[in-house]
């Protein structure tokens, strides 16, 4: 390019110089881009932990899931958003696994409390998100191994613990009960052993926290043994009427007993 003189030659040299000019311009452009990109890649700070080398692979998967479903209420770094979602720093993977596997999170709508619903993420995904939160801020974790005590006295021990600590909210039948102002302690019919353990450990929403210092892991296993036995042991007296107690019993007296008897009186004797 620089060797070209000011006077123009014939058409052939003009064509060749335009092409060479263009190629040259492209090459300069490419060089400039490469220089700029290289400088940027070299000196700019890393993007938000996208490829943060400190997170384990499971946690990275979890972070990806978290970023799509959770940051609108819990914030980019799980620090919480005022008026929408609390901070998750320190809640631990147990809390995450409880909330996500029971479908409570992602929350469908703000209300008196989050309710169990069909989960959005499967168990593996929930554990990944949990791992992410665990590595982000620490907190209680569900232990490995059998969460249900298997020795023969476990059910009885668990029952005593259940009646003192749990029955007042969840009812003697583990069928749940009302709390104030629209809140409720849920039924444990669908709860898995991991969910029950995590709930005791982390105290979700209105539930008090029963940390391992207060209820040891053995005691938690006993309680889980009792709850599972409650669910598995069929009622020996016939249909349990939902195990609600006198309310449904009273309903049954009128809907079954009195209806049958009054219909019988109509059959036996006359009408006016």
């Amino acid at each position: 390019m620089s060797s070209e003189g000011p006077e123009r030659r014939g058409p052939a040299p003009r064509r060749r110089s335009r092409l060479r000019r263009r190629v040259g311009a492209a090459g300069r452009l490419l060089a400039a881009l490469a220089l700029a990109g290289g400088l940027y890649a070299g000196f700019a700070p890393g993007a938000a932990a996208e490829d943060d080398p400190q997170l384990s692979p499971a946690a990275q998967d979890g972070k990806r899931l978290f970023d799509t479903s959770c940051i609108s209420c819990h914030g980019r770094n799980a620090q919480g958003v005022e008026g929408r979602g609390p901070s998750l720093i320190g809640v631990g993977s147990a809390a995450v696994e409880f909330q996500v596997t029971s479908g409570r999170m992602p929350l469908a709508a703000q209300g008196a409390q989050a309710e169990r619903k069909p989960p959005v993420f499967n168990n593996e995904q929930a554990q990944q998100i949990g791992q992410f939160i665990q590595e982000l801020g620490g907190g209680p974790q569900i232990p490995d191994g059998d969460l249900r005590a298997r020795d023969e006295d476990a059910i009885a021990r668990g029952g005593e613990l259940f009646r003192v600590n749990c029955a007042s909210c969840h009812a003697f039948s583990s069928g749940g009960g009302a709390l104030s102002s629209g809140k409720s302690a849920p039924a444990m019919r669908e709860a898995t052993e991991r969910q029950i353990y995590a709930a005791m450990l982390t105290g979700p929403q209105s539930m008090p926290v029963f940390g391992d210092n207060q209820l040891t892991p053995e005691e938690k296993r006993d309680i889980i043994a009792y709850v599972q036995d409650l669910k598995e042991d069929k009622d020996p007296g016939g249909y349990g009427l939902g195990r609600y107690g006198p309310v449904t019993e009273g309903l049954a007296v009128f809907l079954v007993g009195m209806v049958a008897l009054v219909l019988t009186t109509l059959w036996i004797a006359g009408k006016s």
Partner: peptide, 21 residues
């Protein structure tokens, strides 16, 4: 009755018999 339903976040203790809080 034992007033033992503790709502951890609202700090209310609910009694299940007649709903005193």
């Amino acid at each position: 009755c034992p007033a033992s339903l503790y709502e951890q976040q609202t700090h209310k203790l609910l009694c299940p018999c007649h709903q005193s809080q």
